[in-house]
């Protein structure tokens, strides 16, 4: 579903964002990407939603190849991927409902369908009662749930979360993690970048640890062999 082959991202001369990455991510996986600040977590996620292209190597997501994807196809890829961030990136001038609806409106979906889908998704993130609130009136945890709803409203096959708990209190962190697990249980792959090792240590999920742009640990090493075989 996501394959990354021999990929380097070089920002400036000799300045590696990522180095020699080989990864294979299957449908429905839950993955933590960990590592200290500046190790390349964000860069790795950006590769996956093709906000960034590799300097060397190839990234394949949902059948789109980084080497051959056309400009016009990038929106199509984005519609299959949900992305959430530490800073929520909500539009301050509209309420929770409209923020979630926005993701459907910008692709010209019919009004009735938008309403149905948005209400259902807001219910999934337990925010039906706050649908008329502006982001300004919501707590950090609630804002993050709105942004999760916006990412999910299109039913993506994968959810990319870049430090989703970085800006919320411990209580909300638990809620959000539980929510991500629910989402994963319903079949959506979740890839979450975090530097909070405490979150990761206790979990049984696959972990990919980065350091200075290189993968230093991948708990599903058997996948690496698969990639090796693929290449032969």
């Amino acid at each position: 579903m996501i394959q990354i082959y021999d990929t380097d991202v070089i920002f400036r001369k000799e300045w590696y964002g990522l180095k020699d990455i080989n990864l294979k991510i299957e449908k429905g996986e839950f993955i933590f990407v960990t590592g200290p600040s500046g190790c390349g977590k964000t860069t790795l996620l950006r590769l996956m939603y093709m906000d960034l292209f590799p300097t060397k190597g190839e990234v394949i997501v949902a059948g789109f190849h980084s080497s051959s994807i056309k400009r016009k196809e990038i929106p199509l890829l984005r519609r299959k991927i949900g992305v959430i961030f530490q800073d929520f990136k909500l539009l301050q001038d509209r309420d929770a409902f409209d923020n979630v609806a926005f993701a459907l409106q910008v692709t010209g979906a019919p009004k009735k369908q938008i309403k149905e889908r948005v209400l259902k998704t807001l219910a999934d993130v337990h925010l039906s009662h706050k649908r008329d609130s502006l982001p300004y009136h919501l707590s950090g945890g609630e804002q993050q749930r709105v942004s999760i709803a916006r990412a999910l409203v299109r039913e993506p096959f994968i959810l990319l979360a870049d430090e989703p708990t970085g800006n919320v209190d411990p209580e909300s962190t638990k809620e959000i993690l539980a929510l991500l697990k629910d989402i994963n249980a319903s079949g959506t792959a979740v890839i979450m970048a975090t530097h909070e090792l405490a979150l990761v240590k206790r979990s049984p999920y696959r972990k990919i640890a980065l350091k200075m742009g290189e993968v230093i640990e991948d708990t599903s090493d058997y996948l690496k062999e698969e990639i090796f075989l693929d290449k032969l």
Partner: peptide
């Protein structure tokens, strides 16, 4: 619009 829509190409190497 990021170049051209999303998509930054590092100028390394």
């Amino acid at each position: 619009l990021r170049a051209p829509i999303g998509a930054e190409i590092p100028k390394g190497k």
